[in-house]
């Protein structure tokens, strides 16, 4: 079976700077995979290459289906209505009715006429996820789901993502600085460091690794205390 997402020896450069240096990664249909790593590791670059916004300088990046991205910082059309934001998410597909997204996120239906920029952070993230879902993606690439949001809001959104994955078989690639959240939510994970895959495997095993605990889970701090 060919995987949904196949990244092989991917090299991406910004001018002289190499952001990704030989990254390989695979993701099967319906899988939920985490990508963790420190700031500047190249996580967003990888997502933008998968989304087709950046061209690889080497290697390959093949997606057997549609990708939609929930970008870091939401990136909504701030001065447009919630409904317009959702409908624009369907630019590449024929069905532009937001009814399905309103079913998934009932609060959005109530604020459909409001300007997206006036919503709270959690509501905006809901719009961003909804907008990505409008493209009926086979793979949802989420960049920093939790950034700047209250823990309860994050739990709610994470639960939604897990349910979407189980119910619709949509694959999810979750980029997170909050490694604990990502490893809890996704059965499998990759660790990206300075443009290279530093580790990969089942989240449970990665979560036990001393190096990862020290770097991303605050494990070293736990042990000190």
């Amino acid at each position: 079976m060919t995987p949904l997402l196949s990244v092989r020896d991917l090299v991406v450069r910004y001018g002289q700077a190499t952001a990704l240096d030989g990254v390989s990664l695979e993701l099967g249909a319906g899988e939920m995979v985490a990508l963790v790593g420190p700031n500047g590791a190249g996580k967003t670059t990888l997502l933008n290459t998968i989304s087709g916004l950046l061209r690889p300088a080497g290697g390959e990046c093949a997606v057997a289906g549609r990708v939609a991205q929930v970008p870091e910082g939401r990136q909504l059309f701030a001065d447009m209505s919630v409904e317009d934001n959702l409908r624009l998410g369907a630019w590449t597909v024929r069905d532009r009715s937001p009814a399905r997204v309103y079913e998934l996120f009932p609060p959005l239906a109530a604020m459909r006429r409001r300007q997206a920029g006036t919503l709270s952070g959690g509501e905006q993230q809901m719009v961003a996820v909804g907008r990505a879902l409008m493209a009926r993606p086979d793979l949802l690439a989420v960049d920093e789901l939790s950034l700047g949001l209250a823990p309860r809001v994050v739990d709610d959104l994470a639960e939604h993502l897990g349910r979407l994955n189980r119910d619709t078989g949509m694959a999810v690639l979750l980029v997170e600085q909050n490694a604990r959240l990502a490893l809890d939510l996704c059965p499998r994970a990759y660790v990206l460091e300075s443009g290279r895959i530093a580790a990969s495997g089942p989240s449970a095993e990665l979560g036990q690794s001393a190096a990862i605990r020290a770097a991303y889970l605050g494990g070293a701090m736990d042990e000190l205390q």
């Binding site: 939609a68 970008p71 059309f77 630019w91």
Partner: peptide, 8 residues
């Protein structure tokens, strides 16, 4: 940027 992201 968001416009490009949704495929415009």
């Amino acid at each position: 940027h968001a416009a490009r992201l949704v495929g415009i």
